[in-house]
Design a protein around this nucleic acid. Structure first.
Lengths: 217, 217
DNA sequence: TGACATAGTAGACAGTGTGTCTCGTAAAGT
DNA sequence: ACTTTACGAGACACACTGTCTACTATGTCA
């Protein structure tokens, strides 16, 4: 479909750009990142090779842009979910649940790996840090309220959360994903005695049912 | 060093093969998987390009072999750690702790990502499954003994464990890694009330200090 | 509507990596 | 000493890259 000339010219460029990203991701998933070529992409998208070079300088850049787009989308979704819930505990749970479902649906390259091996790019790292920051802040807030454990830094707990939930990609069902969130959350809860008998055994946890359905993709 | 002719001829081939794997991994980590070339590898290793082709058919195969070697090594290490501990709870904890430290040291492509994007290979998947199986069995054993939660299938808990602990790669210290293991373990413990108020609140867990130092690499 | 900027195409080009040969050399195995 | 095995250098056709030059088609704006 070389003739997808849309209304305005800017909309057209955006459409072509998106098509390039999607096609490249598909080819990469199908034949491996290493084998994707500019020629291949151009042919698959239905544009000339020279045209492709007017959008992106090389395959690396396309994969980077694709990754970037994904993370940005997810960030927006998660921020929305967060703002629809109230209280630190509920917010965190809602966000984590949404993140788990996103991971499951997309295949979870969210973590670190693809970015790590796809040559580290500052933008990607920064987007990753934003996500990490969001979780960390919710955890810190919740720890202050006594809902979450405070014997481990929120920073580290956030890392734990994000990685644990990428496991959703390997799970077979939505129900299993929900169970994963439950397990992950129970690692965060307050009220556990530590190996050395240190931890504050003061507050208690209170539960509440689910809510916050995961965002449709 | 084209002259690394070791004693026996088989030892030599093994040495060259290992050098190829290491060099390739290094180049991939340095410039990105996509940019690694056979010519580059041959030059870096110090052998002729044609010779390299007598060891591996292409870069993909080298990366696969490298990944394979890593996972195999780790499996052996973990099996050893497991057999040095007694009882389901202790064994699982020892294995998880070792796994976390390995993840931290190596950078943790253990998870799924590299393999997933590096074109799925049966061998790699199978090695991955072995690791998963080991954890799952320990969890099942422990659940029967009442040490771990039994409201979630061992299979799913194993997935949770492995992913959660790859977070170690992002942690700054050994101490932080230990804390991560603690948090992860507390997600596995029995005695939590579930959102629906189901779970058994029976037995308790006993702790004791570490042991089984992580295997030196 | 006409002028112009913008987006598109095809084809040519040198440069580089690929995968496969052959040939000559040198060391390991017997 | 004789054979096997491994290596390196060079040559080859082929594919992809990145850039450039025409030439065409469409949207934008006076």
């Amino acid at each position: 479909m070389p003739k997808l000339w849309n209304e305005t010219i800017e909309a057209h460029r955006r459409a072509v750009r998106d098509a390039i990203l999607s096609t490249t991701a598909q080819l990469a998933a199908e034949h491996g990142v290493r084998s994707v070529t500019m020629s291949q992409i151009a042919e698959q998208v239905g544009i000339g090779r020279a045209t492709l070079y007017k959008y992106f300088p090389d395959v690396e850049a396309i994969l980077l842009a694709w990754h970037d787009r994904r993370i940005t989308e997810h960030l927006e979704q998660l921020a929305e979910v967060r703002d629809q819930a109230d209280g630190p505990g509920d917010r965190l749970e809602a966000v984590l649940r949404a993140f788990a479902h996103i991971s499951r649906q997309t295949g979870a390259h969210n973590g670190t790996e693809l970015g790590a091996f796809l040559h580290r790019d500052e933008r990607v790292v920064r987007a990753q840090q934003q996500l990490h920051g969001m979780i960390r802040d919710l955890l810190a807030e919740g720890a202050q309220a006594g809902v979450f454990r405070d014997d481990v830094a929120p920073d580290e707990l956030a890392t734990y959360c994000l990685h644990a939930l990428t496991a959703a990609a390997a799970l077979p069902s939505e129900a299993a994903t929900d169970r994963l969130v439950t397990v992950t959350l129970s690692g965060l809860r307050n009220g556990h005695s530590m190996p050395d008998g240190r931890g504050p055994a003061g507050r208690h946890e209170h539960h509440h049912g689910h809510h916050a359905g995961h965002p449709g993709h």
